[in-house]
């Protein structure tokens, strides 16, 4: 089996399992493919978790932004503006520095005990800290998409719900929310794709690579630096990301079909992938 040795040495290197030292000289194509693929695990991890948690927060934010109550609407508007209006790159830097300051602030609250201190340091690690940034960031972008869809829910649907005596939570859950999802889904697919792309920034933005456990781009960059040859590692990353993108389109497309299954053929919305949501 080709690449078996490289796979054994570096297959789980991004998680810290396998050879301690990265390949230094005589770097083979196998090692590049395996190690970059190993790094992809981090991209997938960040993408899935941020997207998963972000979905629920985004729904809450979108509802808050559509709220007539100023006290609820304004914080949601500001949150969305701040995270959509600034570069993700800067958000990474800033949040990392904020998390780094945590334990030093925590020293004043020694009564909290050792356990708390041991936990706060995790915020400065990529697996938690960067995940939080990505979660907040995608929540803001998704909330804006959901908010737009929420406002476009046909009035007739809501009138019909009233006529059936649905109100409050029940109306939201049965009528408003499913329609919002259906309307927002194509744009949300875009957001999912570009969130996965954004995960490539994590190890370039101050979150340290712990024992050289990094994501796909981290290793690609390592190889490009070592070999002075960009024509091998970057196309490998590109290939992995294209595969990942196709997977997302496949999965989201299935869900889209399900969301639209009650509609006659002509009215179904089709997914169109447009690069409009990059940070």
């Amino acid at each position: 089996m080709i690449c078996a040795e490289a796979l054994q040495d570096y297959g789980l290197r991004a998680l810290g399992i396998g050879e301690r030292l990265l390949p230094q000289t005589d770097i083979s194509l196998c090692q590049q493919i395996v190690l970059i693929g190993s790094g992809m695990m981090w991209n997938v991890y960040f993408g899935i978790l941020a997207l998963g948690f972000g979905f629920f927060f985004a729904v809450a934010l979108a509802v808050a932004k559509a709220s007539p109550a100023r006290l609820i609407r304004k914080p949601a508007e500001w949150f969305i503006f701040i995270f959509r209006g600034s570069p993700l790159f800067i958000q990474f830097f800033m949040v990392y520095e904020a998390f780094v300051m945590l334990p030093r602030v925590g020293i004043e609250f020694t009564f909290l005990g050792v356990e708390i201190a041991a936990e706060t340091r995790w915020f400065a690690r990529a697996w938690l800290g960067a995940l939080i940034v990505l979660f907040l960031n995608t929540s803001a972008y998704t909330a804006e998409i959901f908010y737009g869809a929420l406002r476009n829910v046909p009035k007739g649907d809501l009138d019909a719900a009233d006529a059936y005596g649905l109100s409050g939570w029940k109306r939201f859950r049965r009528i408003t929310f499913p329609t919002t999802m259906r309307l927002a889904w194509p744009a949300y697919t875009n957001e999912a794709i570009f969130l996965f792309h954004a995960t490539a920034l994590v190890f370039f933005s101050s979150f340290p690579a712990f024992q050289q456990r990094g994501d796909a781009l981290y290793y690609a960059n390592y190889f490009a630096d070592r070999t002075f040859n960009p024509f091998v590692p970057y196309p490998i990353v590109a290939f992995y990301f294209v595969v990942l993108t196709l997977l997302i389109i496949l999965i989201f497309g299935r869900i889209n079909v399900r969301l639209n299954r009650h509609l006659p053929n002509g009215q179904r919305t089709r997914l169109r992938i447009r690069p409009q949501l990059m940070r």
């Binding site: 794709i193 792309h197 954004a198 490539a200 920034l201 370039f204 781009l217 690609a220 960059n221 490009a224 960009p230 024509f231 970057y234 990353v237 590109a238 990301f241 294209v242 993108t245 196709l246 992938i273 690069p275 990059m278």
Partner: peptide, 17 residues
């Protein structure tokens, strides 16, 4: 080409190329 691959990969790639 920009659809499937992160922009940052292009940045790092093209400047070297």
């Amino acid at each position: 080409m920009v659809r499937g691959v992160p922009d940052i990969v292009f940045f790092l790639f093209f400047i070297l190329v």
